[in-house]
Amino acid sequence: MSDTDLAAPADRLGSVSAGAALELRGVTKMFGALAAIADVTMTVRPGERRAVLGSNGAGKTTLFNCVTGDFLPTSGTIRLFGEDVTRFPAHERIRRGLRRTYQISLLFGGLSVADNVYLACRGVSRGRFSLLRPFRGDPLLTRAGELIEAVHLTAARDALVSELSYGQQRQLEIALALAGAPRFVLFDEPAAGLSPTERAELVSILNGLPEHIGYIIIEHDMDVALRVAESVTMMHNGRIFKEGTPEEIENDPEVQELYLGDGHG
């Protein structure tokens, strides 16, 4: 496994990408009679960093689930770097450079931090079915070590994930989403429940990402959102309610009434 393999997904798809990193057209997801998201249309440029805001139950996480393929949308189309991925299984989208973190950490509690990150690196490279144990000096092991360092978990490298603190688990979530060659990442409330120091660390991790990596971050905390995003989408009752720059959104009277007024801001 050489270094070029690690970069392979990005290289392979670089030619396909035209225009938007992510393009949603009329995406709707029904749970029974409830439209968790309704007719969502949005376009995100490659490398763009966007915050999605909205009260509880606005449909933000459902939007992510539709984009990653955890759920199939009821209607609408989803394009990833120009390619229609609406019916693709989740793993096919991930292999095309999409990544996500989960609002409630979904980690492998019985494995060490290093094994978790190694799995993530393996998932987006060749040799997923390899029956040979990794040899010492396997580039994926090196890459996993770098990722662990990037999220400041080197000291806990060999700890079992179930023994990590809440904040450390949130950091590991991010490491898993940055494995391989990510091109677009969906962060689902990465700052929720973090201490002020951990929040500052998160902001520095996000701002330190290479420029070509775009992301959408769901974030209730305006202070965090404004420091890591260049555009903002407001959601309400499953619909997109406002889009704009952080200043426009912050100063919008409707937004203030609906969202900042009710104690979230």
């Binding site: 990653t68 393929g69 955890d70 299984p89 989740a90 793993h91 991930i94 292999r95 990544r99 996500r100 989960y102 979904l106 980690l107 492998f108 509690g109 019985g110 494995l111 799995l119 993530a120 998932g123 987006v124 997923r128 898993l176 494995a179 391989g180």
Partner: peptide, 16 residues
């Protein structure tokens, strides 16, 4: 073993 414990996350890591 990852698939056993957490199939959804495994798919989100690129595993079939």
């Amino acid at each position: 073993q990852g698939v056993r414990d957490n199939p959804r996350r495994m798919a989100a890591l690129g595993f079939n």
